[in-house]
Amino acid sequence: METAGKSVPTIPGNTFLYQLKRKLPYIISYGILAVTTLPVIFMYLWLIIQSFASNMKYGLIPEGFSLENWEFLWTNIVYKGAELPSIWTATWNSLFFAGMLTVLEVLIGVMAGYALSRLTFPGREQILKITMILHAFPSIALLIATFYILNFMSLYDSLFGVVLVKTALQIPMTTWIIKGFFDDVSWDLEWAGLIDGCSRIKVWFRIVLPQVKPGIASVSIFSFLSGWSEFLLLYTFIVSNENVTLASFLQRLTSDPNMVNYGVLSAISLFYLIPVLVFFIFTQKSLMKANVGGVKKV
């Protein structure tokens, strides 16, 4: 019996050139991708190294290891002669803002999405179209009007006020996404629940909602991330120290270009990144599902 080893030289598939030719398209495409993503990777690397170095020669080469830049975790930073609020206040505020936004968005989005998907009422189609247009407005265009409204309602400089603004801006998209998920739940399932002894609301809660769990998960993730990274609205409408969030906190550190401590800045940036990374690792699966399952229909 001829062994596999003996027949090797006769098969063209095993010659070096053939292998190279077969893999060439991959080598080229991966090469291009590697080169183009290098700056991003380099930036993150620089961020990490900088935060742990005591000094950067020419701004590039690290010299000595130190935790000095991470001192903000236990002491308040003094910047331009004034003491900034504790990083933990900012972290808590960011968490509160993102969490509150998520809860409100999911709550309203789930109910509105169901109504738009299932109920027939006059103006349903118009509402669907208008919400789409609403989403097209950049929030910066609405800043002044929003300021007036918040001020009038005495919600200026209140985190909850900004949560309301952000929720209002996000709701159209959330509703659309969740509506797509509800569209995929068959009427039969709902009717079966009604016949099996549920009221309409109970059917919605017990039978329909569990079917759109992936949709709820993806919307929660997206809204949490967008709340965590929100800057403009918070920067505009929050002034007091005790209401500062992480994004604004970072901005305060860079307000005077001549006095920026890049070591501290990169340490705080990393700190700001960690929750997002952790969150992303845990929710990646649901996110992928959402991209596949979130079909949109009118």
């Binding site: 039969d188 079966a192 016949i195 549920c198 569990p210 079917q211």
Partner: peptide
């Protein structure tokens, strides 16, 4: 009368089992 109060059982063409 609401469906739940009619004392009926139904098998759907799609079966409509609760997937969860």
């Amino acid at each position: 009368l609401e469906p739940k109060d009619r004392e009926i059982g139904m098998v759907f063409q799609s079966y409509a089992l609760y997937p969860h």
